[in-house]
Design a protein around this nucleic acid. Structure first.
Length: 224
DNA sequence: GACCAGGCACATC
DNA sequence: GATGTGCATGGT
């Protein structure tokens, strides 16, 4: 009999951790920086996001209060290297405006809210979709919610754990139903998936040398 | 020069 | 409800 999904996911985790070690995610220095990075990295290479964050820091606007007060077009110019800069400037504004409107500009106020209602509030904001919301919840706020991204879908698809076409919530549930709701585990797990994804699970990448290579997979499976 | 990157909203059928 | 399109820079 095949092992349970939970056992399989933990075997993946162990293999990835053995291969790559702790990833020390999120690569941001504060919850504020994590949230800004989560919006800037939407469909964008992280190296481009780093350039934008450096420019925000140099302009002394790498903080919610500064972002609240800055002109949106000036902000867009600062974050230009991250791509989609007009859209993302508006999204950053939307987040900080919500933070002041609903929570007095106080991130720590969010700690008092139940996970699900906070997640719903974030998803109401234009520009905050499921992945960005979960990244904020897990990596900035330490909440036990699993982050699904393009790599996650592709890896699970190739290993036949999900059907191609599975939606975000379906994939998220695979992890949350199979693993204990431990923020440190969810944090490391997703980070390890990005690590292996970048090396071995891009659309045309090779499986050779992948730490998950000896698990059942189909290298020819297109993106899930 | 094409392809890809840690998405999301919106229009259209 | 499913599918297509716009948003944009920078590395390979």
């Amino acid at each position: 009999m095949a092992s349970s999904t939970g056992e399989q996911l933990m075997a993946f985790y162990d293999a990835l951790y053995d291969a790559y070690g702790p990833q020390h995610w999120w690569p941001g220095e504060s919850p504020t920086e994590v949230i800004i990075g989560a919006i800037l990295t939407q469909n964008t290479n992280w190296t481009n996001v780093e350039k934008a964050i450096v420019r925000l820091r140099e302009a002394d606007v790498l903080g919610f209060e500064a972002l609240r007060d800055i002109d949106v077009q000036v902000l867009a110019e600062h974050i230009r290297p991250a791509g989609y800069y007009n859209v993302k400037a508006r999204r950053l504004k939307t987040f900080v405006e919500w933070l002041w409107r609903e929570h007095d500009g106080d991130l720590s106020a969010l700690e008092r809210l139940p996970l699900e209602s906070l997640r719903e509030q974030l998803l109401q904001l234009k520009g905050i979709g499921p992945e960005t919301a979960d990244s904020i919840l897990l990596y900035a706020l330490g909440r036990p919610t699993f982050v699904v991204d393009a790599y996650t879908a592709r890896i699970l698809g190739r290993h036949k754990i999900i059907e191609s076409g599975a939606d975000y919530h379906e994939i998220k549930s695979v992890f949350e139903n199979a693993l204990p709701p431990d923020p440190a585990l969810f944090n490391e797990y997703h980070a390890l998936f990005v690590a292996v994804g970048k090396r071995h699970c891009r659309p045309r990448a090779r499986c050779e040398g992948c730490p998950l290579e000896h698990f059942e997979h189909d290298a020819s499976t297109p993106d899930a």
